[in-house]
Design a protein around this nucleic acid. Structure first.
Lengths: 104, 104
DNA sequence: TTGATATATGTCATATTTGACATATATTTT
DNA sequence: AAAATATATGTCAAATATGACATATATCAA
C-alpha cells in the first residue's frame, strides 16, 4: 500500500478507507492533488500575511466565508481555478505563483 | 465578464497587455486569462513533442478529441483544472509546470 | 465565566464544466 | 485528384463546482 498517496488523499479531505480506488491512484492524479494541497496552504499563508479574515477575502472573491474555509482546507469540492483566482485576488503574480509550486 | 468578447479575442489569438484596456479587466481577471492562455499553448506544445494526436491525448485523459481541441484553443469552457490535468497526463511535473509559468 | 469574533462543516439550488456526438474544415498521404 | 487522417466548432445532457445559508466549534478579550 502506497502510504504517500494515502496521505495525499487524506490531507486533501478524501475519505480513504480500504477502497481499491485509492490503490489505483495514478501519478497524474497524485500530482493534481499535491498541487491543490500546495495552493490551498498558500492561500491561507497569503491571507494571513495580508491580515484578512476569511470573510474579508470572501468579499474580494465575491464568495462566502464558508467557501474560503473550504479553499484553505483543500476541500475536494474546490477547483484549482478557485484556488488560483484566490491567490490572484490576494495580489500574487504569475511568477510568484510559479515560485510557490517549487518551494513546496 | 463578457464571455463573448473573451471568446472573440481568444479566437483571434489575442495577446496579453492589450486585453486590459480593451475589456477593462481587473488585474486578477487578466492574470487568470493570461494563465489559461499560457497553459493551453503548453498543452499543444507538449502533445506535439510527444507526437500524439488530439484523439490519443483524449484517450489518456478519458476525454474526447473535441475537448482537447478546446483545451488547446483556450476555449472559455475549459477550466484551469482540465488544463493542468492535461499537462500532468503529458508527464509534466510540478516544477516543470512552474517553469512554464515564467518562461511563457 | 461571558460575549464577540473567527473559522469549520454540512446541505442545497443554481451555475459552470464536462465528455460525447455530429459535422465542418484542414492537412497529409497515396 | 481523392482518400485518409487530423483538427475545429457547435450543441447538449450529465457531472461537478459554486455561493449562500445554517450552524457548530474555536479563539480571544473583558
Amino acid at each position: 500500500m502506497d502510504i504517500k498517496k494515502k496521505k495525499l488523499l487524506e490531507a486533501a479531505g478524501w475519505r480513504v478507507g480500504s477502497t481499491d480506488d485509492f490503490l489505483s491512484l495514478t501519478d497524474e492524479e497524485a500530482a493534481y492533488i499535491d498541487l491543490k494541497i500546495t495552493l490551498s496552504k498558500k492561500v491561507r499563508q497569503c491571507r494571513e500575511r495580508e491580515n484578512l479574515t476569511q470573510t474579508q477575502l470572501a468579499e474580494c472573491l465575491k464568495s462566502s466565508q464558508s467557501r474560503v474555509a473550504k479553499i484553505e482546507a483543500g476541500d475536494p469540492s474546490v477547483s484549482v481555478d478557485l484556488l488560483i483566482r484566490s491567490l490572484f485576488a490576494l495580489g500574487v503574480t504569475k511568477s510568484e505563483l510559479a515560485k510557490m509550486l517549487v518551494s513546496q
